[in-house]
């Protein structure tokens, strides 16, 4: 693996920030899959964000079986395991915009209903209430300009900070990467380390597990 001179001062510091989400109750509501399809088309983008990105932060402690709220509702309230599996397989990190993510979700539900028309208007046991997230970004005390203190910050910040830099970052960067990889690659020249971090699977890990994996990969780059 690449081994940079970690003692050298890196040019641009990394500021660990964190984002906090406040849940707003939306106007849309779905009692059937047809209504879900319609609501997916008309709801604001921050609703799509809430039920895919934010929900991962709210459930960061679950290692497997929870992907996004639409998949969960399709299984628990609509009893449609095929659609649930298809929706659950959507990886938010494959999108750099909410509109692309929304479009994919719409296509999955539309295709499923075309193949299973009798499922379209069957009542769910519980309605799906669309919510939205209001985000506030905050600083943390951790600022780093070398790998050692980067590792220290990584270990100490909250899991919300990890989520902010590792998952939400794609929407800000408009790149298929994250803040950590971007900084390690651009400022520390750790291209392979950055790529290895990008490959961490967030859907089979808790967020604490993601933090540990990032730290382990960065530690290996020091050896």
């Amino acid at each position: 693996m690449n081994a940079p001179n970690t003692a050298r001062k890196l040019i641009k510091p990394f500021y660990f920030n964190t984002s906090e989400h406040l849940l707003r109750i939306g106007r849309e509501r779905a009692c059937t899959l047809n209504e879900l399809l319609h609501a997916l088309q008309v709801c604001p983008e921050d609703s799509i964000f809430q039920h895919t990105y934010s929900t991962l932060q709210e459930h960061h402690f679950i290692r497997q079986g929870f992907s996004n709220d639409f998949a969960h509702w399709s299984l628990s309230s609509c009893h449609e395991p095929i659609l649930a599996e298809q929706l659950a397989s959507v990886d938010v990190r494959e999108y750099t915009s909410i509109s692309g993510l929304r479009q994919h979700m719409i296509e999955l539900v539309r295709d499923f209903l075309a193949a299973h028309p009798r499922s379209a208007d069957r009542s769910a046991t519980e309605p799906f209430y669309f919510c939205a997230a209001d985000l506030v970004v905050l600083p943390t005390p951790f600022v780093t300009n070398n790998i050692e203190s980067f590792l220290e910050g990584l270990r100490k910040v909250t899991l919300h900070s990890i989520h902010h830099h590792f998952i939400e970052a794609r929407l800000r960067l408009r790149l298929m990467t994250n803040d950590f990889s971007e900084w390690l690659k651009e400022e520390a020249g750790l291209e392979q380390t950055a790529a290895a971090i990008d490959r961490i699977d967030i859907y089979t890990n808790t967020m604490e597990g993601v933090r540990r994996q990032i730290a382990r990969i960065v530690e290996q780059s020091l050896n």
Binding site: L22, I98, S99, V136, R172, R174
Partner: peptide
């Protein structure tokens, strides 16, 4: 949650979610 709400109602605009029509 209360602190977030007070800040939002005080005029601190929530961070917008970037869309295709916005620059990152």
């Amino acid at each position: 949650r209360w602190l977030l709400l007070f800040r939002i109602l005080s005029g601190q605009k929530p961070v917008p979610i970037p869309s295709d029509t916005q620059s990152a």
